[in-house]
Every structure is written in structure tokens, then in C-alpha cells.
Design a protein around this nucleic acid. Structure first.
Lengths: 136, 136
DNA sequence: AGAGCGCTTGACGTTAACGTAAATGTAACG
DNA sequence: CGTTACATTTACGTTAACGTCAAGCGCTCT
């Protein structure tokens, strides 16, 4: 057999990369940043079902423009909701803060979009004027 | 008189900073990047009406998410042939592209906000359960 | 045993848009 | 003339999220 086709339900780094279209460097980076926790068989990494679930969430978070640090905190919220009350409360508060940031961001984005639309309308008017002049 | 109150219709760097809420560093940086071309009276900078118009466009472009390099190219195009229809069309198209990107970004953001709200609702439920348990 | 992958761990490189510090200049006030 | 208060240039520092070597280990195929 060639490149070790994951015998169990764990994936090698290469399989993981292909499954999620990321580079090995990225996976090692995420591990160093404590976003992923692959099993270490000797020096090699084996990515579990949990790691796959986490990576899915990481990539989604990135598409939304969150920083990896934000994502790490959110992931903590996702898995440790069975801990003690104080911890859960802290996590919940963190999530609320994050939500507020996101809504503020959306407000700014909406404003920028509105402004850009105005600019585009003016541009369209200028273009129309040009064309009327040329059509004379 | 203290800090040279612009005698003509040019502004000193400080006046410019106050007028646009930017730092001196930013203005020098923009000059180095060839986004602004203040008159050099000796070593000092004097910002003309043109510079003010350009800075306004720069700041607006930044709000729309254009990079400084993108903005520089747009400004240069306008300097060379400001009243060229093809040029105006090109700028308009770029604006439309950006608008599409921003709206896509907003859609994703909305989705993320919805997801996070779900997570928070679950967190709130867990907390409530904890408290019901603790209440007895 | 030797060749050749693929994986591993460092560790420095990259990009954007400035921040910040150091050394120096210069204009006006007193 | 000295001090204050800015100004200027030069150049290194910052942050995020990896990219890109470099050098070595561990299997496997032959």
C-alpha cells in the first residue's frame, strides 16, 4: 500500500488536507495555536472526528472574517458547554460580546454599502450624460 | 501668531490632520505612496485643495474596502483622463464589483450572526438549567 | 543497504497600513 | 540667546495567517 489510507477513523495530515483543501502548514499552525488537537502517534499526527468537526467550524469562521483567536474562543464555547456554571457564564458573555461586535460590523457594512450605492448612482448618471452627448 | 494659520488656501499638516481626523504619519505615508502631492515649501508640506479632494476620495475608498494601491490606481486614472468615458466606465464597474463583494460579505455575516445567536440560546438554556438545579 | 517518499520541527520571510522612536531642523516667543 | 513647540527624515516595530526553506527522521520498495 502507498500513502497509508487511514485504517481507523482517523485521517493522516495529507488526507486531512485533501478533505478540507488546506495545506499541511495550516494544520500544524492550527495545532500550534491550539485550535486542533490531533493524536500524536510517535511524531505523526492523526486527526480524529472531533478535529474534523473543529476544522469545519474554523474554516466557516474564517469565511466570516473572524480572527483565529476569536474562533478559538468560539470553539471553546462549542465544546465545553458541559463544564461548571461559572465557566459557562463566562463563555456565554464572551459570545454576547462577539455578537455585539458582529452586529456593529454589520451596521458599518450596511452604511458603506448604502454610500457606495449612492456613488454608483452618480457614476451611472455621469455615464448616461456622456452617452446622451455622444448620441447627439 | 502661533501655529501658522494657513494664510492662503493651503493647509499645514496639522490643519490637514484635524480637518480629516488622520495622523501626520498617515499623510506622510500617503505622500510616500504617491497618493498625495503636497507642495513642498522648503521641507514643509502644504496641502492644496486638490490634496483635500484626493484625501476625501482616499478615505472614502478605504471605507469601501479598497486597498491603498487600488485607490492609487483609480486616482491616477482620473488624473490622466478624468473625463474619459471608458475610464469612468471602468471605475463604475470596479465599484459594482466591490458592491457585490460587500453584499456577499454581509450575507455571510448575517448567517454567522444567526448561527451565533443559536449557540447563545443554547448557552442560555444550559445556564437556566444549571440555575433550576441549584435552586433546589 | 540504498533510494526515495512523506512527515517532522524549527525558524525566518511576507503583506498592509501605519505606529513609534531617534536625531535633527526651524520658526516664533520672551 | 534659550526654550518651547512643532516639523522633518530615517528606519525599525507591529499584527495575522500562513509561506518557504532547511535539515533530519522513519518507512517502504527493490
Amino acid at each position: 500500500m502507498s500513502p497509508i489510507p487511514s485504517t481507523t477513523d482517523t485521517l493522516t495530515i495529507r488526507e486531512m488536507c485533501e478533505a478540507f483543501a488546506v495545506t499541511p502548514r495550516t494544520l500544524r499552525f492550527y495545532e500550534a495555536k491550539e485550535l486542533l488537537f490531533p493524536i500524536r502517534k510517535g511524531t505523526a499526527r492523526l486527526f480524529t472526528k472531533q478535529d474534523r468537526a473543529r476544522l469545519l467550524l474554523i474554516l466557516r469562521g474564517k469565511r466570516f472574517g473572524f480572527s483565529l483567536e476569536d474562533i478559538r474562543q468560539l470553539l471553546d464555547m462549542y465544546d465545553r458547554d458541559g463544564s461548571n456554571e461559572a465557566q459557562l457564564q463566562r463563555t456565554y458573555d464572551l459570545g454576547c460580546d462577539r455578537l455585539a461586535q458582529m452586529e456593529a460590523q454589520r451596521a458599518e457594512l450596511d452604511e458603506a454599502i448604502a454610500d457606495l450605492k449612492i456613488q454608483l448612482a452618480e457614476g451611472a448618471a455621469s455615464l448616461a450624460a456622456f452617452r446622451r452627448a455622444a448620441a447627439e
